[in-house]
Structures are given as C-alpha cells and as structure tokens.
Computed example of a mutant assay.
Amino acid sequence: MGNLHLIKLCVGIDSPDQLLLSRESHGTLHTPTRHVTRMWPKREVELLDGGSLYWVMKGVVQARQEILRLDEITGEDGIRRCAIILKSDVIRTTAAPRRAFQGWRYLKGEDAPVDLPANRVKDDALPPELARELSDIGLC
C-alpha cells in the first residue's frame, strides 16, 4: 500500500454498509466514486502511488477506498476544485478513533489503520463508542 493517504469525514454516513447502500441507491455501486473537494493536494504524486481515502464515520475510521486519480473540475461559481476519483470497492479497516476536523488531512502509511482480515469483513459493525474504546486499549 502507498506511503501517503488522505483522511476525511464521511458526513451523514454511519458505517461502511450505509456508504455502500447510499452508492447503490445512486446507481454508482460498481463505478468509480467521485468526491469533490475545494483544495488540491500538493502531494498528488505520492497519493497517486497507491494511496487511499480513509473514511471517518461517527468519529472512527472504518473504511477506505483506493485513489485512482485527481481530476480538475470547475464549479458553477467558476472556482477550480479537485475531484478525487476513487475505486468502487469499499474496504473495511480496523477501527481507529479520530476527532472531527474540516476538509481532508494527509495520513502517513505507517499511521493508517490496517484492512480487516477477510474472515472479519462480514462481522457486524461495532457501535462507534465501543470501537473507539477497544481501539484506545489496542484490541480492535
């Protein structure tokens, strides 16, 4: 996996399953996802070398999507924005608590939560508070 990633709040989404349901309802489940942001990452080359966008849901990192590319788009207001194009797969990760923040932040590879093992991907999601507490003591 890449050495540099992005981390962002997934506003209005509580779990990876809800993210998938939302994408399914919009007809984008099996197509790349486009997430638009105001700022263009200055470390684009590093991000495009295997980076992912890690999603914080209910105060806990719970999933990631691989970054395919960054596209420049211009809004109706004439302002240049960055469309982060993500692979359609939503990969569940171990729980990692994160405080709220605005926009996105860089996340070093060594600080990124690891992917859940294949035998745990179908596990029921823990309540965010419990996941945060287990993560704090190193059990999740």
Rank of each mutant, 00 (worst) to 15 (best):
K42I: 03
G27S: 10
V56C: 08
H30I: 01
L47Y: 01
L20C: 09
I73F: 07
V45M: 08
R81L: 15
P41R: 01
D77P: 15
W40H: 15
S22G: 08
R43H: 04
D71Y: 03
P32Y: 03
R64H: 09
D14G: 08
L6H: 00
L48C: 10
R80T: 06
Q62I: 06
P41G: 04
R64P: 07
P41C: 01
E66I: 13
M57L: 09
R81G: 05
T28G: 06
D77Q: 13
E44C: 04
D14H: 02
H26E: 13
I13Q: 00
L20V: 09
L20E: 11
R34M: 09
H30M: 11
D77G: 08
D49S: 14
K58F: 00
G51F: 04
G51A: 07
I7F: 07
V60C: 09
L9C: 09
L47P: 01
K58R: 03
R38E: 03
E72V: 11
Y54V: 04
P41H: 07
R23H: 09
E46K: 10
I79N: 12
G75D: 14
R69H: 12
R64E: 15
L21W: 04
K42C: 05
L53D: 10
W55H: 05
K8Y: 00
Q65W: 10
P41S: 03
R43V: 02
I13F: 00
R43S: 01
E76T: 12
P32W: 11
S15Y: 03
T28K: 14
G78A: 13
L29C: 05
D71M: 05
D49A: 15
L53T: 05
S15V: 06
R69Q: 12
I7P: 04
T31E: 15
M39H: 02
R80L: 05
L29H: 06
H30Y: 08
L53K: 03
E44W: 02
S52A: 14
L47F: 01
L6C: 04
A63Q: 10
D49R: 08
S15L: 02
I7W: 00
S52F: 14
I67Q: 05
T33H: 09
S52P: 10
T33M: 11
S25I: 08
E44Q: 12
I7Y: 01
R43P: 02
S22C: 07
D14E: 08
L6D: 02
L70V: 06
V56Q: 08
T28E: 15
P41L: 04
V45P: 03
D71K: 07
G78L: 11
L53E: 11
D14L: 02
P16L: 13
G27N: 15
T31N: 10
V56F: 01
L29T: 05
E76M: 06
D17C: 14
